[in-house]
Design a protein around this nucleic acid. Structure first.
Length: 510
RNA sequence: GCCGGGGUAGCUCAGCUUGGUUAGAGCGCCUGAUUGUGGAUCAGGAGGCCGGCGGUUCAAUUCCGCCCCUCGGUACCA
């Protein structure tokens, strides 16, 4: 009863909760993330991409196009602004890039930029999926050259190398190939994007699921019904036949396509698997042209990649790659981590020619790629490629005697000026034990200790907390542990900086 | 959107089936043993709108309904 009384007197507390689908990034996450981003930044800059930053909020037409409808807006955070302007948080970075290019007519093309920033979507949060997340984009706008596409792929490859990831693969293809095939077997134009969307699931769901979704639909593991596209049996067989040429996708499928382009069935190494498909490919000359163009581009990119020094095992042609998005028009590619196939594609993109046209009416060709920073980081941490330090602080200057504060500060200044990240203990307690505990908990690896002894003798004591922590494992008795310390040295002040630097570099390399 | 698990202390969870005294445990946290040294140990302590609203009841953390949130699967992903 008395408890209840107390409660009613208390002011209502605010629950410290974040919004659904949002989250905090504690220092350890953010430190790791910044390390990773620094690598991408430096590689892309070495390729001559410059940073661009655009607003988080845009006019809604910028993001959705002029004909935005109510159901289209379901997954975008939209508002009516103070001046009654419809606006929304960006859900990706490309639309803003297109707006930027279109709105700056004096911009010299090709324009090549990278951009990193948060984007927002009103999705249902799922595993590794949030309403606010960070994307990393690179794009080259205003160039038709396939070298632009190859360069983006090469930059991705370089970045992954530099991050120490050995097992990744950039798989690439060209939309025009499947587009052409679709035309040639008579799939209506308006169905083609849906077909691609389904084919895109091949990796995750397998050929049988794709087959069913092209046709009558299927029921997934949870018992939910997934509607199919309702293509007729004939079309499905042709598509599946083509996708099944993937035994050695680079060779068989490519040769098959070149034989289609040349209209010579005899060039096809796998007649039995593709004869049926081949014989169906007679209906559309348009389709054949598109197929040929896609094939040529693919080969061109393949050559450029060789020139750029991307090894074959890192970048491979895979004709089953289509990408789900509708706006891709030519080359498409995605990067997977072969050790972590569950993470899906972690850096992907392709050529899109229509995005700037929305604003200017002029077609400006562009190619770009986008990475989900958070997912990639999760993968890196899982693979042990990035260390998640709990703090950036490297040195704690402990406070033994408040009377000596100015002395401590001058030591602190000296350490900081030497480029070492350092802090002085700012807590309330006088207990020295607490200060060591603080350093330990926060994860500061080194303590600099100055008591009356040190000050009198113009020395400092430097303690390696990492090594101390290791030693604690073997010692059960407190007295023994305290005495066993050969993990700290007392040296003259003039030697302090050199000593700290060697110690810290030793700790870094652990 | 659909299917399923869950929401009780800072964290991980027990209790709920069968409503009823003071809602527990482990870990963590705070204080001290130990004001010049982190771990371990020991002693003491703080910390709960039992997710929210409504219903049934003399009585609800417990039963019922709705909602919210969360986790996993699936769909969507411009």
């Amino acid at each position: 009863m008395s408890k209840n009384k107390d409660k009613s007197k208390k002011p209502k507390k605010i629950r410290p909760e974040v919004l659904k689908g949002f989250r905090d990034y504690p220092p350890s996450d953010e430190i790791a993330r910044q390390k990773m981003v620094a690598v991408f930044r430096s590689v892309f800059e070495s390729f001559g991409f410059s940073p661009l930053q655009t607003p988080s909020l845009e006019k809604i037409e910028t993001l959705k196009g002029a004909d935005y409808g109510a159901d289209n807006l379901a997954t975008i955070f939209s508002f009516v602004g103070p001046e009654k302007v419809d606006m929304a948080l960006r859900f990706e970075l490309t639309a803003s890039l297109a707006r930027y290019v279109a709105g700056n007519g004096e911009l010299t093309l090709p324009f090549r930029r990278y951009q990193i920033g948060p984007v927002w979507r009103v999705d249902k949060p799922g595993p590794g999926r949030f309403r606010e997340f960070t994307q990393f984009d690179i794009d080259s706008v205003g160039t038709e050259s396939m070298l632009a596409d190859a360069e983006i792929m090469a930059a991705i490859s370089k970045s992954f190398d530099k991050l120490g990831i050995e097992n990744y693969k950039i798989k690439y293809s060209n939309r025009k190939i499947l587009n052409g095939l679709a035309k040639m077997i008579g799939i209506p134009d308006d169905k083609a994007p849906d077909v691609f969307r389904v084919i895109d699931k091949l990796d995750k769901q397998g050929i049988e699921a794709v087959k069913l979704e092209l046709g009558p639909g299927r029921t997934d593991k949870s018992g939910d019904k997934i509607p199919g596209l309702g293509l007729d049996e004939n079309h499905i067989t042709h598509i599946v036949n083509f996708l099944s040429l993937e035994v050695d996708p680079e060779k068989n499928a490519l040769q098959f396509i070149s034989s289609v382009v040349a209209r010579k069935m005899s060039d096809d190494p796998d007649r039995s698997a593709s004869f049926e498909l081949f014989s169906a490919l007679n209906s559309s000359e348009d389709g054949r042209e598109e197929l040929k163009s896609g094939y040529d581009e693919l080969i061109e990119i393949n050559n450029y990649l060789k020139n750029l020094g991307v090894p074959d095992e890192k970048a491979q042609i895979d004709l089953t790659i289509v990408r789900g998005l509708g706006y891709y028009t030519g080359p498409v590619f995605e990067t997977i981590l072969t050790d972590l196939p569950d993470y899906g594609s972690v850096f992907a993109g392709g050529r899109y020619d229509g995005l700037v046209e929305r604003f200017t009416g002029k077609k400006i060709p562009a190619v770009g790629a986008s990475a989900g920073v958070d997912r990639l980081l999760a993968a890196l941490i899982k693979m042990g490629k990035i260390k998640a330090d709990p703090t950036v602080s490297q040195v704690l200057v402990t406070v033994m005697d408040k009377e000596q504060t100015s002395e401590y500060i001058s030591i602190l200044n000296e350490i900081r000026d030497a480029g070492i990240k350092a802090e002085i203990f700012l807590g309330q307690t006088k207990s020295f034990t607490k200060q060591m505990k603080y350093a330990d908990r926060v994860g500061i690896p080194v303590a600099v200790i100055l008591g009356s002894d040190e000050i009198e003798n113009k020395t400092v004591t430097i303690k390696n907390l990492i090594a101390g922590g290791e030693q604690a494992k073997d010692v059960a008795d407190r007295e023994e542990w305290l005495k066993a310390e050969n993990i700290q040295v007392t040296i003259s002040r003039s030697e302090m900086i050199t000593n700290l630097k060697t110690l810290l570099s030793k700790i870094e390399n652990l």
